[in-house]
Amino acid sequence: MKMITTLALATMMTVPAFAQDTTVIGVSIPAATHGWAGGMNFHAREAIERLEETYPQLDFVLATASDPGKQVSDVEDMMATRNIDALVILPFESDPLTGPVAAVADSGAWVTVVDRGLAVEGIEDLYVAGDNPGFGRVSGEFFVSQMPEGGNIVALRGIPTSIDNERVAGFEAAIEGSGIEILDMEHGNWNRDDSFEVMQDFLSKHADIDAVWASDDDMAIGALAAIEAAGRTDEMWVLGGAGMKEMIARVRDGDTIVPADVTYPPAMIATAIELTALNFVSSAPVSGDFIIGSVLITQDNAERFYFPESPF
């Protein structure tokens, strides 16, 4: 028995490249439809490039989808035509992708799920995600620290999803009992134009706003433009989130209207891809949950979070 294995190994070594057992890792992510996703696409491509160079035995298939249906097809195609050994997926939506990803797991392939969990637990081998309740909590705690006396704030929410709900719940729990009152909350859909318009209307509606929880840097940019146009920049400050480079630069430079930011790094896709690759090239165990904490960025630590090359 041992002989055969040794023989097999010997033949493998003598015939390079062809016989070398390449591992195919499929990566399926949403297309770059907004800033955060753009950054995520950038970090995914960068991680893949680096890994392919470092480990010639790894082969990557990257597919970007603009809707859940397309993503389901992508995953099915990867199974059928590329016979993937592992799948790294950032699901567009949990429910529609659960079945197809379960089928990949059933085929024996390694599954890494990123950011958004599947509807059924226990399918994935590795789960890499940001901490959404933590994102809301860190943001809320910052408001409490800045407004010890309480005050009036307005909030912009993202696209109605479980991510958004978890963040808002975390935020509301953190400011509870602090005297901070949320005057109004509307969906800015993580979009600059939408949040510009919502913020304009908030400004018409409320005469006394002390601060804005924009909950996302794209939305913060829209809200800031509206506040600037209304000439009310002295009255309030804005807290975004995610860690867009322009906003981090403003925090670093001590802009009073943008005192801080809270991370939700799009580079978490790189963490997921690297960890998945480790499973195939090393003996390091990587299964389980890997939760990336949300960190408060202030002027003191902003430099560490500033990535000039990233599009986000």
Binding site: T33, A37, G38, N41, F42, E246, P311, F312
Partner: peptide, 10 residues
């Protein structure tokens, strides 16, 4: 999207 490299053109 391609011109912006997935991000934002400012």
């Amino acid at each position: 999207t391609w011109l912006a490299d997935g991000g934002t053109i400012s």
